[in-house]
Design a protein around this nucleic acid. Sequence first.
DNA 1: CGTAGATTATGACCGAAAGTCAGAAACCCG
DNA 2: CGGGTTTCTGACTTTCGGTCATAATCTACG
Lengths: 227, 227
Amino acid sequence: MGIAERKEREREMRRNAIVDAAERVFFANRIDTATMDQIAEEAELSKGTLYLYFGSKTDLLLAIQDRGTTILAGMLAQVFAENRKGLELIRRLGELYFDYARTHPNYFHAELYCRNQEFMEEVAGSEQFRKTRDRRLEIIRYVVKALQIGMVDGSIRPDINPHQVSLQLYAGLNGMVQMHELLTVDRYHKEMAEEKLFDLDLDTLVPNFIEMLLCGLRPLEPLPSKN
Amino acid sequence: MGIAERKEREREMRRNAIVDAAERVFFANRIDTATMDQIAEEAELSKGTLYLYFGSKTDLLLAIQDRGTTILAGMLAQVFAENRKGLELIRRLGELYFDYARTHPNYFHAELYCRNQEFMEEVAGSEQFRKTRDRRLEIIRYVVKALQIGMVDGSIRPDINPHQVSLQLYAGLNGMVQMHELLTVDRYHKEMAEEKLFDLDLDTLVPNFIEMLLCGLRPLEPLPSKN
DNA sequence: CGTAGATTATGACCGAAAGTCAGAAACCCG
DNA sequence: CGGGTTTCTGACTTTCGGTCATAATCTACG
């Protein structure tokens, strides 16, 4: 009875092809100006068919976001293979997040686009939402894990609450990378840079920020290894 | 020739009344589901008239955001009246931002809603955009000023670049407060809290984050005043 | 094979909402 | 008062997300 399996496979492929087409359309111009008709044409399907595979335009965007988050989660997972101290792990996680934002700007941008309350409210019920949220949690879980490692090996002060600090690191870095995108991509930047408010170097902005965050994690007494 | 003045005044008042009505509508439900027809009815004007005063729905939202940013800027300005060390000023600025988010959740929410690239791109040309952006810059300018004060009075390490660090603090805190909103307001929170990922106390999340950021600003040697 | 029944695809259609504009109303001034 | 200017109106246009009756395609079974 291989027919059911083949059909299932075909359905999955079509679904993927639709997401591919959607990516092309969403990423070609501004996300918010893309239309379902464009995506249908790009996918060489009728609009109605799109709705057989995805409940709404937002669902489709969520599927794209999910691809991105999966990539990121994969990148972060590798860090733990290396044998490092906890604080070092945290630094690497931060750097990788930044790397991800730079090497997959489209996915990253899609994530930022989805990250607002109105949007979440809209999709809150859907299956896609659940999937994507779980993957997001997975990322925070990596941070918790790295913190706990550091608290044991002494590279991170033991009096922190990793379940709180993980969120703080995640949120703080998010804000920074989001700002980085804003400064990098659009005309907002140019106008701000004209003023002398900041003569900043975009390449050091995020790395330096990570170092700043790490300061708060170091044990109060200097480590035996250092100094 | 007081007629021109009176007309000007009347125009300004009508403009304000429209923003008032828009606030009521935008804040009553989700921002993105509000319609211009609703706002017109709330303002007791025809839709066409709205467009005599504001170029688009987004322009209207920008005007609301501007009110919020003005309030925030006012709050921050007061801090400098108090006579404090630079590091202390920075802490106060951070706390006030958080206070603002809590005491004016609607304005704050509107700001978050606008803070994405697509949105900015859409309104980039308008007069409102320029106004709002300038007020936003004003806020960063306060942070720069506080940092410079601290670098002089010795409460902040002298080897930082205030034009970079100001942006980092602003961006980082932004991310944190944004996350705070997400966790506070909607169902996203409940589901995340069910998992044991974080047993966090929302009231300490942001304050503790501020302390964490401050760690990176302190001079490496302990201050004479402390210790 | 052939055909009934299920599955999948289509695109004309619908409703909602942003934005427009020709004409009406209100107002100003000589 | 009457002509001109400013302000306002709401019906209309357009665009787009989403629907659904119908068509095309495929599967299973006699």
